[in-house]
Nucleic acid binder design. Sequence first.
RNA 1: GCGGGCGUAGCCAAGUGGUUAAGGCAUCGGUUUGUGGUACCGACAUUCGGGAGUUCGAUCCUCCUCGUCCGCC
Length: 354
Amino acid sequence: MHTPHGDIPTPCFMPVGTLANVKTLTPEQVKAAGAHIILSNTYHLHLQPGESIVQDAGGLHQFMNWDGPILTDSGGFQVFSLSEMRTIDDRGVTFKSPRDGSIIEFTPEKSIQIQNDLGSDIIMAFDECPPYPATREAVMQAVRRTTEWISRCISAHRRSHDQALFGIVQGGVYPDLRQQSARELREFELPGYAIGGVSVGEPPELIEGIVRETAPLLPSDRPRYLMGVGTHPEMVAAVAGGVDLFDCVIPTRWARHGTVVVRGERINIKNLPHRRDYRPLDPDCHCYTCAHYSRAYLCHLIRSKELLGYTLLAIHNIAELMSFTTQMRQAILDGSFSSRWRPQNFTSSPDLNS
RNA sequence: GCGGGCGUAGCCAAGUGGUUAAGGCAUCGGUUUGUGGUACCGACAUUCGGGAGUUCGAUCCUCCUCGUCCGCC
């Protein structure tokens, strides 16, 4: 996949950060961990510091000192997940700012304008992301609005020459609604498509079903992006279904809470056995953290709530995930993907020892 | 030696004559999926310094004892 700020190999995982720091990392650290692209957030940047400040800084890349590709989420998800007070109608979403209580309106036009101002490489459509569980009627309405809104997003988009607008498929857990949403979005011939409305609380088995039914409905010559996912098995299943791009808060959020992923398995570095374990997290991992620090030291840092601990764990978790997607990519290239992982089974753990 | 205060979990600490003895820290686990970073959930005192007594029933009341702190000799 090509963007003005560089190519993105696929499948690829995007670390998520409100700014390029991914909470606790510098762009250099993010890059060294193997990340090609990062996700930033329209909703948060609009609330603080405001897109005009970013625009006057010369755009998001310059503002945050990240010269690689950036994708911005449209704010549709945050409206669903963060706003306490909100009303959604056909025009858009009105909500109370959690920062100062002011009334803020997000419409497709507003979201696109903000993302144009921010200057990211990939911008996302403003969609309605219904919760789980949601009634069929509620999901039908979300699909209808998401389709209507994509057309307004396209009309409002002023930088289609250097910003790729991705559409988002909704439809919840209803296969026919997913199908309808995908079919309607394809009409717009967008540069990329996302599967949205997953990882909103539904059981993992359902995610697999949704992805495996939805991904094939999207054009295979365009990037297919599964939003908000996820764990290793979830990504394996999604890649098997044709998904190219992922984003997830897991590696950095887990890092801030002391959980690391080692060879596909999660471990809590705060646990007793690590207090005197002077080995690295993973002797085969090439990340900065594994090259220089022991589990015992990381255990100490996290228990002491030292900021360095969050940084070192985030570096490892991102590196581990990037290494994992790299392995999947190579397996696809040499034809060993389907024999190496059993993608039809979500719970099958990837064999990382081979 | 005399007078007084206090002893509740590893630490701090609430509390009542009747059986669930608050809470916090620490400890030990778990959770986290299109990110308001340091969060959330669970476990953790058959027992209230020790002994005897009063009582249907004592962590709580009485006596003794031990420890500790503060005054005075």
